[in-house]
């Protein structure tokens, strides 16, 4: 039972990173209509920036904010220079994002190197709760994710900006006629999603070592989470992230470890085939396609 609880806590912290990248993708894909395959690389760049700043002596939590802002700026540049030209041809945008992910990956290798990087546990404490040892940093990762999820969820579903955003997704022309600057909203969503990827990267490197190739591994999980939950659906991304995180954590603890990745891939394929609209329903992706 103790092992089960420990596995659950561990899975939850791993799921947190997946949820952050999943929310970023679900917003960018479902609300801005951009399929960004380089989103995993955004996360990796965030992790690398954190590694670099922590190595230069910066506090981890400041480095986390820095990574978020840096990747947000990267997202702004990518949206302005690349994706805004392919808004009505999502397939071209998708292919371009593959190019961008190749560039970012190898630019990081060029600047640093291809070996894995890690930082020391920024908190370095272990809490014992009810006989279960919990690494403090893992609990903090879960807490930060929970706060971000709450802000995003209420921002999308309750605030006037979220309402305007959803209006632009369901009927772009009418939304523009009502005075909503749709273009600016698309840019804004892209920046926000990128910022979350940067924070996700910082949190990830506090849990495990990362390599320049981490992004291309995690991206598929991010897409799976957002599609499982339903595109544009923040709550769905959380459910999707938890499902994948639990399948991973439990199969690593109980099943055959060499098949760990296979379980989540199979779950992904099954949900995509059986419920294309996602477990909780979503926008079914950009209208232009």
């Amino acid at each position: 039972m103790d092992i089960l609880l420990q596995q659950l806590v561990n899975s939850l912290s791993v799921a947190s990173v997946t949820i952050l990248i999943g929310i970023g993708i679900t917003l960018i894909f479902g609300l801005a209509g951009i399929v960004n395959f380089a989103h995993g690389e955004f996360l990796m760049v965030g992790g690398m920036a954190t590694w670099f700043m922590v190595g230069a002596g910066m506090n981890f939590f400041l480095a986390l904010v820095f990574a978020g802002l840096l990747v947000g700026a990267l997202g702004f540049a990518a949206e302005r220079c690349l994706f805004r030209f392919t808004l009505n041809r999502p397939m071209n945008g998708f292919i371009m994002s593959i190019g961008l992910s190749v560039i970012l990956q190898h630019a990081v290798i060029r600047v640093f190197n291809e070996f894995q990087k890690s930082i020391a546990d920024p908190v370095g404490q272990v809490w014992t709760i009810g006989g279960v040892d919990i690494i403090a940093m893992r609990a903090i990762v879960v807490a930060i994710t929970a706060v971000i999820v709450a802000i995003t969820y209420f921002g999308i579903s309750r605030s006037r900006y979220g309402m305007a955003l959803r209006a632009s997704v369901s009927d772009r022309d009418t939304a523009e006629l009502m005075g909503i600057p749709v273009r600016r909203y698309v840019t804004g969503v892209f920046i926000y999603g990128s910022l979350l990827a940067g924070i996700g990267g910082a949190l990830m490197i506090s849990l495990f070592p990362i390599t320049p190739f981490t992004g291309s591994v995690i991206i598929i999980r991010g897409f799976a989470v957002s599609l499982i939950g339903g595109l544009g659906n923040v709550g769905g991304a959380v459910v999707g992230g938890l499902v994948l995180g639990l399948v991973d954590g439990l199969s690593a603890g109980y099943g055959y470890p060499e098949w760990t990745d296979a379980y989540s891939l199979v779950v992904m394929i099954l949900i995509l085939v059986l419920r294309p609209q996602g477990l909780l329903g979503g926008t079914l992706g950009p209208k232009a396609s």
Binding site: A262, L265, V266, M268, L272, P276, L284
Partner: peptide
């Protein structure tokens, strides 16, 4: 059953799955 973008993700998953099966 599913649209273009979903299918892209499915093929990508299949590809990853194929490599795992071969490796194991």
């Amino acid at each position: 059953r599913v649209g273009g973008q979903h299918y892209i993700i499915i093929t990508f998953c299949f590809c990853a799955l194929f490599v795992i099966v071969l490796t194991n």
